[in-house]
C-alpha cells in the first residue's frame, strides 16, 4: 500500500513545479494524468495546494520598495518578524476577543482565469473571481472594501457595530452581515444578493431629490451606472447564474451570443470573436466550464453548424 507520506511528497513535487513558472502543456498533461490516477493523489494535492495558497497572505509582510523597484539585498527583518509572530500568536489569543485590529489596509488580486478566497481579519470571507483587484481596510468602527475591478463574492461576518461597505465606482453597498456579490465593469456595477439585506447608494452625498433605493434582499439584483440604478425583479435563478463562477461555471439562459462570448473572454486568454449578421440575434442556454472556451466553440460549431476559425489568441465564430 502506498502511504500518505509518499503520495504527499509526489504531490509537493508537482505543486513546486507548478509554482516554479516553467510549466508547459506537457507538464500539465503529465500532472493531469497523475491527478487522475487515484483520489488519494487528488486529496493530497488539494490539501497542500490550499495551505500553500493560504501562505500567499505572507505577501502582506512585504515592505513597499522605495525608489528602486526590486529588493537588492536580503532583508534581515523578517526572520525576526516571524519569531515575533509566535509571541504575537500567544498574545493575540488573549486579545482576540477584546480589541479587533486597527485598520490594516491590504490589497488582493487575481489573474485572468484566477479564483481565490481571502479570509478577512473580522471573520468575513471574500471570493475573488477572474481578473479582480480589491483593497480592504478593516478598522474598529467600520469595514471597507474597494472593488477596483472585476467581481467578488462577500460572506460578511455579522457585526452591527461595524458596518461593512463595498465601494465599486460610483456606488457603495452597505451591510451588517450577509452574502452577496459585486461585479464592476468600469463605471457599471452590479450587486447580487444571496442572503440577508443590503443597501446600495451613490458614493457621493445624495444629490437633491435622489430617492434612496429600496433595500435589496435574497434573490435581488441591482445594476448601477453613474447616478442611475435599477433593481431587477427578484429571481433566485438569476442569482444562481450570477454566482455560478464560484464553482467555475457559466450559466446562460437565453443569453445573447455576444454577451456569452464576453463572459468567456473575462476568463480566458484566448478570446472569442463573434461575426455579425444573423448571429446577433442568436441566444444560448446551458452550463459551461468558464475556463474551457475551446469546448464551448466546438459545441457551437456542432450544434448550430457555425464556422470556427482558430488563431493562437482568438476563436472567430461566423455563419
Amino acid at each position: 500500500m502506498r502511504t500518505a507520506a509518499i503520495i504527499e511528497q509526489e504531490a509537493a513535487i508537482w505543486l513546486a513545479r507548478q509554482d516554479g513558472g516553467d510549466w508547459n502543456a506537457a507538464d500539465a498533461a503529465a500532472f493531469a494524468h497523475w491527478l487522475d490516477q487515484c483520489i488519494e493523489h487528488e486529496v493530497s494535492f488539494y490539501r497542500l495546494e490550499s495551505a500553500w495558497r493560504a501562505a500567499d497572505r505572507l505577501a502582506a509582510l512585504r515592505v513597499p520598495a522605495r525608489g528602486t523597484g526590486r529588493a537588492a539585498r536580503p532583508r534581515i527583518w523578517w526572520p525576526m518578524a516571524v519569531a515575533a509572530s509566535l509571541l504575537l500568536l500567544c498574545v493575540s489569543a488573549v486579545l482576540i476577543h477584546r480589541s479587533p485590529p486597527v485598520a490594516t489596509p491590504e490589497r488582493f488580486a487575481t489573474a485572468r482565469g484566477g479564483h481565490s478566497a481571502v479570509p478577512l481579519a473580522d471573520g468575513s470571507r471574500i471570493e475573488l473571481n477572474t481578473d479582480t483587484v480589491i483593497r480592504t481596510e478593516i478598522a474598529n468602527d467600520r469595514r471597507r472594501v474597494w472593488l477596483e475591478r472585476g467581481e467578488a463574492f462577500f460572506d460578511v461576518a455579522h457585526d452591527p457595530a461595524r458596518p461593512f461597505e463595498v465601494l465599486a465606482g460610483s456606488h457603495r453597498v452597505i451591510v451588517v452581515g450577509t452574502k452577496f456579490s459585486v461585479r464592476r465593469d468600469g463605471a457599471d456595477m452590479r450587486v447580487s444578493v444571496l442572503e440577508g439585506r443590503v443597501r446600495v447608494e451613490p458614493v457621493q452625498p445624495a444629490s437633491l431629490g435622489t430617492a434612496p433605493l429600496r433595500l435589496l434582499g435574497p434573490g435581488d439584483q441591482a445594476m448601477a451606472s453613474g447616478t442611475n440604478a435599477l433593481i431587477l425583479p427578484t429571481s433566485q435563478d438569476r442569482i444562481a447564474a450570477a454566482l455560478s463562477w464560484r464553482t467555475g461555471a457559466l450559466l446562460f439562459d437565453r443569453t445573447a451570443l455576444a454577451d456569452a462570448a464576453a463572459e468567456f473572454n473575462r476568463y480566458n486568454r484566448r478570446q472569442l470573436r463573434i461575426g455579425s449578421g444573423a448571429l446577433d440575434r442568436m441566444t444560448i442556454s446551458g452550463r459551461f466550464d468558464a475556463d474551457n472556451v475551446d469546448a464551448f466553440a466546438r459545441l457551437l460549431g456542432k450544434a448550430y453548424g457555425l464556422k470556427i476559425r482558430e488563431t493562437a489568441d482568438t476563436l472567430e465564430i461566423s455563419e
Partner: peptide, 17 residues
C-alpha cells in the same frame, strides 16, 4: 474556525516560523 479566519496572517506566520 473564526479565530483562524480572523487571524490568518498570524497563523501562517507562526506556521512558517
Amino acid at each position: 474556525r473564526h479565530a483562524v479566519a480572523r487571524d490568518e496572517l498570524r497563523h501562517v506566520r507562526a506556521a512558517v516560523a
